[in-house]
Amino acid sequence: MRIAVVATCLGDAMFPQAPIATVQLLERLGHEVVFPADQTCCGQMHVNTGYLDTALPVVRHHVEVFGRALDDGVDAIVAPSGSCVGCVRHQHAMVARRAGDEGLATAAEQGAARTYELSELLVDVLGVTDVGAYYPHRVTYHPTCHSLRMLRVGDKPLQLLRQVRGLQLVELPDAEVCCGFGGTFAVKNAETSTAMLADKMANVLTSRAEVCTAGDSSCLMHIGGGLSRLRSGVRTVHLAEILASTDRGDATADVIFEEASR
């Protein structure tokens, strides 16, 4: 299959591990991955902060870039992010319609129909749950709100994690409660966000996991940022990185990282 990857703006600039692992995983499974280089951002931050008019050109840009990829014979579009796919699937057409651009709305819907979050692509489209990964760690999974309630990915990420050799999956208490990230919410209502984070971190620590994983780098940035501040020793790792890991080492080993940032 020919698959276009949405790196996501956060993944491209701040957390390249997630899109890199996505590429390596899909290539290992025998698929051809393309990276439409003109891509920037899906516009989620603008939309969710209420800048629906300002978001319109950003949405149009995304729809056009990936529309061209589909025209060029791409079979599917994948993003290692539940919230970006949520925005593409549930908000792009809304933004276009609000501006009275029915043509863009229709194009957005066509693109959205071929856009998948990583676990959806693997389980629903490619039909695999065992991706041949090896990850000898105790891991707990946090279902991010948008993957859970906007995309309804259900237990697909867990199906994938259960097949990872060496991985010990431990349950996260109150897993389905929001971690408190919420985009600009984390800054605009920082104290409430932090109170929610405190409970999420307590549950992560209760699970006795070494690693907390999720399908969104944004939520992991929030949870990981809190755990780092606590010097808890628990790491946050994107689901794609775990699935890309093999017994030949972490898939993203060829990425240049400082020791301290791992």
Binding site: D12, P16, P19, A37, V187, L197, G226, S228
Partner: peptide, 23 residues
């Protein structure tokens, strides 16, 4: 306003290589 973030959470340094550079 980003102090709202760093009051309770760290932020990792931007990576030395972006995804598109890696690509």
């Amino acid at each position: 306003p980003m102090s709202g973030w760093t009051n309770a959470r760290d932020l990792p340094a931007p990576p030395p290589e972006t995804f598109r550079q890696w690509w």
